[in-house]
Design a protein around this nucleic acid. Structure first.
Lengths: 213, 213
DNA sequence: CTTGCACTTTACCGACCGGTCAACTAGTGT
DNA sequence: ACACTAGTTGACCGGTCGGTAAAGTGCAAG
């Protein structure tokens, strides 16, 4: 018999490795965290890691998938769908991000910024596999933003000719930039201070857009 | 006799080390570049590096000072002061950044993004000395942006009640975000595609600003 | 009882990490 | 001629890196 009780110890080491990799890499960086440290934190021997994953990169890829799933469930969807109206949704999203970063700083002593943006910056120039995986997750975030903007167009809160795809991309870019600044400050207040810029960017009729992509 | 001819070989190794550190760290990352590699690229033995610098961190700090000086001279000042009018200056700045990133990609095969933002992201959570040095350089960039915005207020292009300090910070945040996205894409076209967001953000009367800093 | 398999454990690999050291070289001022 | 010094050199340090290999463990199906 098999797979009837998935909630036993089967896969416990695998999960512990994914969680340890997440905790360490998110709060520091890919290169500064070693296999040995991940194994120690997970309470697993190195050989077991290589039983479940071909190597550090594959472990990180799997960790990012799980991280995005949790981020979508815990931050993205609740933060964007709670309120009604575009401005309220943007504000709610900013506060959801602020709460996430502030909690991380309380728990780990560090304000991590955006885990995906961080990895994109660190590995963008010399690890194509990781870069493309991150790119996919960022596109998924953009799709959520666009859905919110499309709803605002439907409501008449934004003019019907709004290029919601372009605006969603700008939304993500500004959010990433805000988190870079907050990380440089190591201060979650930076998120609240810069947050209003999102409203200024998204609630105004965007001038001529060169739609090239 | 001394210091009458600073253009001889005195300090040549030091300069070569700074340049090698810049080339390697800017196109990759701090952690992925080793002392040995920097020395090899500079044509200098390891012992000499430790004659001029106490260690890797100090070398990086000095490299960042030189990098900011060049960036200010070659990109910031020409890009911001050339044209007249706020919109034209923003556009010129975007194109200056685009040109810089496109040239870097041609020369080194990699689109590096913002070197300061990159280091802030990589070291922000676990190297306070580097983080604070980067914070200073980012503040210096913000001051340049603010001067441009103040001139626009003087011209009447922006309303007199504009909070130029806040707007300059938003300008930097959005620029950093655009460069994160461009690095994730490894495509300079992303800078031009997202560039118009800067105009949308800065040329509109920013709504209520919680001035807390 | 035995075979097979998923998983674990431990010892080990060569390469590289940042950093140290003492000896040496060459140019300078006295 | 001499001493001083800034700069250079190459050998060396302990520690860590990501990754490998082989033996061992426990459990479940036949």
């Amino acid at each position: 018999m098999e797979a009837i009780t998935p909630n036993d110890t089967r896969g416990a080491s695998r999960k512990a490795l994914l969680q340890a990799a997440r905790d360490l890499i998110v709060t520091r960086s890919y290169a500064s965290v070693g296999i040995a440290e991940i194994c120690a934190q997970a309470g697993v021997r190195k050989g077991s890691l290589y039983h479940f994953f071909p190597g550090k990169e594959a472990l990180t890829l799997a960790m990012l998938d799980a991280l995005y799933a949790d981020f979508e469930r815990d931050v993205l969807i609740p933060g964007l769908s709670g309120a009604n109206g575009l401005r309220a949704r943007i504000d709610a999203f900013v506060h959801a991000i602020h709460a996430f970063e502030a909690r991380m700083q309380t728990e780990s002593g560090q304000l991590p910024g955006c885990p995906f943006g961080n990895l994109a910056v660190e590995m963008g120039t010399h690890n194509p596999a990781l870069r493309q995986a991150i790119r996919k997750h960022l596109d998924a975030v953009t799709a959520h933003f666009r859905a919110v903007l499309d709803a605002a167009v439907q409501n008449g809160e934004l003019p019907p000719e709004t290029d919601t795809a372009a605006a969603a991309e700008q939304w993500l870019a500004l959010m990433e930039g805000i988190l870079v600044m907050a990380k440089a400050d190591q201060d979650p207040a930076t998120i609240l201070r810069l947050g209003p810029a999102l409203g200024a960017l998204l609630l105004n009729p965007t001038p001529e857009v060169h739609h090239e992509r």
